[in-house]
């Protein structure tokens, strides 16, 4: 149980970073922490105490870890890579246009 709570805590830390930080790249790091907390939780869901890899054929009575979340986490990590690359690219272009990374100074849009 404690593992799950720690995972949720990590998620909340990431959310805190997104909501409170003023620097574009710190916001991005917050997003990454959030993402990785969910991945960690996902891998934990498939974990079994004393489990082995589910690749041996013909073994009965052995405990296997659930392989599905591991496969899905791999997919999710690749998606995470794509979003992180895009948002970091956006941040660099914003820096070129505005000359600052402070979101308080980046506000041409209002209303």
């Amino acid at each position: 149980m404690i593992h799950y709570l720690l995972g949720i805590l990590l998620f909340v830390i990431g959310l805190y970073g997104v909501l409170v930080k003023r620097n574009l790249f710190k916001i991005i790091i917050g997003l990454i922490i959030m993402e990785y907390a969910t991945f960690l939780l996902f891998a934990l869901v498939g974990f079994r105490e004393h489990g082995t890899a589910p690749i041996q054929p013909g073994v009965a009575g052995k405990v296997f870890v659930d392989p599905l979340p591991q496969a899905l986490v791999l997919t999710a990590i690749v998606i995470g890579l794509g979003t992180t690359a895009l948002i970091a690219g956006l941040a660099v272009r914003i820096y070129e246009k505005y000359g600052t990374l402070d979101i308080r100074k980046i506000k041409k849009l209002k209303g």
């Binding site: 959310l15 997104v18 574009l24 916001i27 997003l31 959030m34 993402e35 979003t83 895009l86 948002i87 956006l90 941040a91 272009r93 914003i94 246009k97 505005y98 980046i106 506000k107 041409k108 849009l109």
Partner: peptide, 17 residues
Amino acid sequence: EAEELEAAFKYQVMGSV
């Protein structure tokens, strides 16, 4: 343009959350 990048950044942060 500056506004579009800013909007996209905001959109992506909220969308990712």
